[in-house]
Design a binder for these strands. Structure first.
Lengths: 217, 217
DNA sequence: TAGTGTGAAATAGTTCACAGCC
DNA sequence: GGCTGTGAACTATTTCACACTA
């Protein structure tokens, strides 16, 4: 799906590291100084071996006696993600889903901050939503260039998704998170990830049915 | 992540089949009668070989001359997903995200219909949202049992997610779609899928940064 | 002696390659 | 001649197993 990346860290590991960070931050606040792989695995529910391998893949090493130093590890993972100069994100499509995402992230202040939102509807593209300034779609290129935005979040209807993606890539965005229920075609130098809620729901329904019935078809 | 499933159809294939169905429905409306694997692959952007393998995995076979019969194939895939008796879904957590999802699905009328929403906040759990009746969380078990709901959608804050999941499973739900940024522990007979928007965003940001670092644009 | 780091095996999933068919 | 079906090769990822160490 996502294009080939010549990284040392495999994609699923990256996802888990984000989770570990969250869990470790919780532990750190609770005053825990050290964790063992199996404790972290328990919380993340996967295997201890996998936790060890994941941490190893970022070059972090624990001690058999104490385990992994929580605070230090948080810093280490943080250094991986919150790289030089914070990345900025823009969201296109201030519909229901777009608004929800803006509101959701406004609270959490995630790493790539959403600093601009766009919509083709003039009524929606005015003022702030959850503290994020909204612009008409015509200003997309200007704003993206001016703010040096590198990540795009697409929450427009399926039929406009590709068009919006092309526009953002043209403006200099290099990573896209696509919520539209359609696949995007992007050049090899861009990164895309796809969150398709409808498909996920159907998938869960399918496997639920399957497990319940046991007999396929 | 998702628990072991003794199905003949691998999980990624299921996801792609859902997509194929959408694409094929579009084609059918456009009056197309037959497609070749590479045409479908083009739209879904993956390889023709994969499309063929996916379709083969549900026992559907095309002809070298014409390709795959669109209408027939839609029906075939539909039969897989829209099984005997439509499944019903319930959503817990009528916050921003929950509302957005309700609104989103209200339009599309997806296969597992969302027939109930719940919230612990009395103000939110009244009346309808996007045509879906809202109940206080106390009624969850009653309603789920009464309506024979088998799928649960969790859009509550992370700290309540596990609790809500347990409650729903207790009530008879067997599949969960979790939007809370925390992993859920569920028994082996249940199906879970996890949509973690924050993590996805951080992942995209990470790989974007990584790729950018590799070759100076 | 429980817990780590890591090579090796196992498993899951994708792409290749080619025979067969229309 | 281009397209399908399918075994085989290949890639990616997870799990296993075990030497090592504090």
């Amino acid at each position: 799906m996502a294009s080939q990346l010549n990284s040392i860290i495999p994609a699923p590991t990256v996802e888990r590291l984000v989770l570990y960070r969250r869990l470790l931050e919780g532990l750190a606040q609770g005053g825990t100084e050290y964790v063992h792989s199996h404790e972290l695995a328990e919380k993340a529910n996967n295997s201890a071996a996998q936790v060890r391998r994941d941490l190893m893949s970022i070059g972090y090493t624990g001690s058999p006696a104490k385990g992994y130093a929580v605070a230090d590890l948080v810093k280490r993972i943080g250094r991986l993600f919150d790289k030089k100069g914070d990345q900025k994100a823009a969201l296109v499509g201030v519909g229901k889903l777009g608004r929800a995402i803006l509101g959701y992230f406004a609270l959490r202040q995630p790493h790539p901050r959403i600093v601009a939102a766009f919509d083709s509807d003039k009524d929606k593209s005015q003022g702030d939503i959850a503290g994020c300034p909204c612009y008409p779609i015509e200003e997309l290129i200007n704003v993206i260039v001016r703010e040096k935005i590198s990540i795009g979040i697409i929450t427009v209807p399926a039929q406009h998704a590709q068009q919006v993606a092309d526009l953002m890539l043209l403006a200099g965005v290099r990573g896209l998170l696509n919520f539209a229920p359609t696949p995007l075609k992007v050049p090899a130098w861009a990164v895309v990830d796809h969150v398709d809620i409808t498909t996920k729901l159907e998938k869960v329904a399918f496997f639920t049915e399957l497990k319940a019935g046991k007999q396929p078809c």
